[in-house]
Amino acid sequence: MERKYKYVTLFACLLAAVVVTLGAYTRLNNAGLGCPDWPGCYGFLTVPDEHHEISAALQAFPDSEIEHGKAWLEMIHRYFAGTLGLVILSIALLALRRQTEKPLPLKLALSILVLVVFQALLGMWTVTMNLQPFIVMGHLLGGFSILTLLTLLYLRLNNQFVFTEEPKIRRQSRILFIALGALIVQIALGGWLAANYAAPHCVGLPLCQNIELFSLESLFHLPVGAANYEYGVLPFETRLSIHFIHRVWAMVTLVFLGFAACRVVVAAQSDLFKNAGRIVLFLLITQVSVGAAIVHWQFPLHLTLFHNFMAAMLLIATVRLCYLARCKA
């Protein structure tokens, strides 16, 4: 039973990674409003394609234009997200059933379930509030949080793989958690950048063209009061400033996380910790390089999608390293 539970949790981790990637792909293709309602699409469980279905959809939503490609992207994302929700529900129910014998991490499983329910609400509000940036960023962070907590649950179920406790590594845990905090801030900044369609407003390396327009004050110009937020509503200088802050904090994250991972690799005695630190370093260097390449090649879609995916992989690799540094053999 416990082994099956681990397999279900691992499947949920992989499915969450797919859902996060599909969400990024949907956002990058400007398909977030591909279906103007929720949870269906123009009142149907699939994208309407028959003549009578299209007629009914246009009558129900006269201000919308059916774009089948975007609508299917949105619905496929919802199908996968819904499947993930059901898998997480099964994880929570199995944890509840096992409390009388060899208990499973119930609090963590229930926390993930609550987060999934809130994430579904954010998904609904994303559509009904026409891509309001605060909601879009929250939805993105919710997806990353679910993936992270599922990874943490899987790690807790596999404590037996930590064969040794190294005091030198435990002493690095504080700087590791500071670096993790810096990474979380960077991911949030990336979500805010994406939610406000700010990527193309800062071209050139290492500084933006028109960098003289950068203003800390403009960062407090919030996107509120619009009827529709698709393609962004903030002025050019605000979006340029958002993007530039994301770049600056990327360097801060590079320094903190790179330093912390290097200290683990140098101090570690076992291959377990050395390899965990090396994985973080590899993903970190790759992520920074991909970010620079995206700007250099003018924001190609698939490279930008890979940048989103790598952010998720870097986050769970860092969480794993922090967990290993803190847990006891």
Rank of each mutant, 00 (worst) to 15 (best):
G277F: 00
G232C: 04
A260V: 04
W192Y: 11
V162W: 07
G138M: 11
L22T: 09
G277A: 00
L58T: 08
A268M: 03
W192P: 09
D49L: 11
H77A: 02
L58K: 15
V280W: 00
R98L: 06
W72F: 03
A60Y: 05
G258A: 00
V290S: 12
A329I: 07
S215N: 03
L272R: 03
K70M: 03
E101W: 09
A195H: 09
R278C: 10
S111Y: 08
A182T: 07
F144N: 02
Y154V: 08
F309V: 15
A293K: 12
L28D: 08
V127T: 11
L213K: 08
G291W: 03
T21F: 08
I242F: 08
L284T: 02
L141V: 11
V185P: 11
Y7I: 12
L257N: 01
L122W: 06
P62T: 01
A17E: 09
I91A: 10
M310P: 08
N158Q: 11
H77V: 04
A325C: 03
T148N: 07
G181P: 01
A260Q: 03
L93H: 05
N30R: 14
S215P: 03
L89M: 01
H51R: 15
E53P: 03
L113N: 13
L147G: 13
V8Y: 11
P133A: 02
M75H: 05
R239S: 11
A120E: 09
I175G: 10
W72H: 04
Y154L: 15
I135D: 14
G142R: 12
L240I: 06
T100H: 14
V248L: 11
L254T: 07
F80V: 14
R3Y: 11
A31K: 04
G258C: 00
L213M: 10
L183Y: 01
A120P: 06
T26V: 14
N158M: 09
L28R: 12
A16T: 06
E74G: 06
I66L: 08
K168P: 09
A120I: 07
L131A: 01
P48M: 00
K274A: 00
G82Q: 04
V18A: 11
V18W: 09
T148M: 13
Q160D: 15
